[in-house]
Computed example of a mutant assay.
Amino acid sequence: MGIIQSLKRFFSKQTETSEKNHDQALQSHYYKMTKDKTFRELENFFSEKEGFEIRSVSEEHGEMIVKRTKGKPAFIVVTIIMVRPFRTSVDFSVASETMLFTDFGSSRRLIYGLYEELNQRLTFVGTGLGDELAK
Rank of each mutant, 00 (worst) to 15 (best):
K70P: 01
K70I: 07
G71M: 08
K72D: 03
P73I: 07
A74D: 02
F75S: 09
F75M: 02
F75G: 01
F75K: 02
I76C: 07
V77D: 03
V77M: 13
V78L: 13
V78N: 02
V78Y: 09
T79D: 13
T79H: 03
I80T: 06
I81F: 11
I81G: 02
M82Q: 15
M82F: 00
R84K: 15
P85A: 08
P85D: 10
F86N: 13
R87C: 08
T88P: 01
T88Y: 05
T88H: 07
S89Q: 15
V90T: 05
D91L: 11
S93R: 14
S93A: 15
S93V: 14
V94G: 01
V94C: 04
A95M: 07
S96I: 12
M99P: 07
M99I: 14
L100R: 10
L100A: 14
L100V: 12
L100E: 14
F101C: 07
F101S: 12
F104E: 03
G105H: 06
S106W: 00
S106A: 01
S107P: 00
S107Q: 04
S107T: 02
S107N: 02
R108G: 10
R109K: 14
R109Y: 02
L110Y: 06
I111D: 07
I111P: 06
I111Q: 05
I111H: 09
I111S: 05
Y112H: 09
Y112R: 03
Y115P: 04
N119Y: 05
R121G: 04
R121T: 12
R121Y: 06
